[in-house]
Design a binder for these strands. Structure first.
Lengths: 212, 212
DNA sequence: TAGATTGTTAATCGATTAACAATC
DNA sequence: TAGATTGTTAATCGATTAACAATC
């Protein structure tokens, strides 16, 4: 078995990808770990360690080829394939995700939108029709769905999670404010906005105290 | 100076707060670190270490009083005060935040919404009128604003950040997909949705490989 | 009192940084 | 070749876990 790469490292990879994308846009051809470290405000050592978890992408005396490294990180993050997403919960947050066109450039394509609200029947967002929840299982059977985004009230989240997991879904992007219970082999990525806001709040209070 | 508490610890506090809130709702009066550790799937040791960064909230032989601990963590996270928020960028994501009523229960109150789009002039979300960007400085001068949420395209983010920082804002909740440059003393909390999605994507690919 | 469980110190583990030989 | 910079090993730092004396 391959050595396990820590989530701390994985979490940093999208940021490298973003910075390399900007360099690429600016026509920069090569970059050293040291120069990148200055821009990103991390240590050069960390950059080299992180990248070498996945392979040697650089060249001694030269640094890293921006285009090549950008593409390699893209592959590591699975951006070289298409991921079909359905969004369950077509409220503002669900619609915000459905409207976020830039995801598609990275291969994340929203192919379905679901809601419980009958008033939404027949409506669509960016050409994607909003379906009712009783159509969920049929849709999952008829379409290749890789990721389910849960943008619904937490009261419904457990039930819906059970349904999609039963239907064979192995990846959930969870915006509901609770911890999902899923069987082994199902990946959950949480986005807990209120946790993020509380962390910000802590840091505000801390900062104020430091002023005094 | 007080000992610095790591962000790793801070990040876990909202989750404790959430679990304690649920226990409270369920009428549970006291809980031991061990029992909580089983529910939360962390070690009891970590719970005790985390809490003791802020003080001794428990009692030997008894455990923790749920109500008391819940309130104390609330205070640590600054939830015992009101935080006024303005949201800049009244697209779906901005509106989603403005509509998220539960934030208000924790003291986070949206008092303003701003957008560049003239078509939005006069519209309002949940009773909060959408203002145009040229009204920003006046609004900040006339109102106590604690947090600015940036839910706008990254092209505008740097400019707007400069403006609000100049106006004295010390906390930014950043949803724009770039790293903000802010002076010392300004706190930034990032929510990079596409980074989160990429992390999920990595874990999907990894899981698939492990199956083979 | 005896039992339970904290608060806290000590041990371990993992992640980050530093250093440098390998090499382009 | 000389200089630059990687890949990688070693050292350090910090975070997590274990252990246990203090104490309710």
């Amino acid at each position: 078995m391959e050595k396990q790469i820590s989530q701390a490292v994985i979490k940093r990879m999208p940021r490298y990808y973003r910075y390399l994308g900007e360099l690429l846009d600016n026509g920069v051809e090569r970059i050293s770990s040291n120069e990148l470290s200055i821009r990103m405000k991390v240590t050069a050592s960390q950059i080299r360690q992180d990248l070498n978890n996945f392979g040697g992408f650089g060249q001694q005396g030269y640094g890293y080829n921006v285009q090549y490294l950008y593409e390699e990180i893209g592959k590591i993050l699975g951006l070289d394939r298409q991921h079909n997403i359905i969004i369950i919960g077509a409220g503002n947050l669900g619609q915000a995700l459905a409207n976020y066109v830039k995801f598609e450039k990275r291969g994340f394509v929203t192919i379905g939108l679901f809601d419980v609200n009958p008033a939404m029947r027949g409506l669509s967002v960016r050409g994607i029709p909003i379906k009712m929840m009783d159509e969920l299982e049929d849709f999952l059977a008829d379409n290749k769905v890789d990721i389910v985004a849960l943008t619904l009230p937490k009261e419904m989240a457990l039930d819906v999670t059970d349904r999609v997991v039963k239907a064979g879904i192995r990846a959930i992007w969870n915006f509901a404010h609770l911890d999902l219970e899923v069987p082994e082999g199902v990946v959950v990525q949480n986005v807990h906005l209120s946790d993020s806001l509380m962390q910000l709040s802590y840091n505000i209070v801390k900062h104020e105290m430091e002023q005094e």
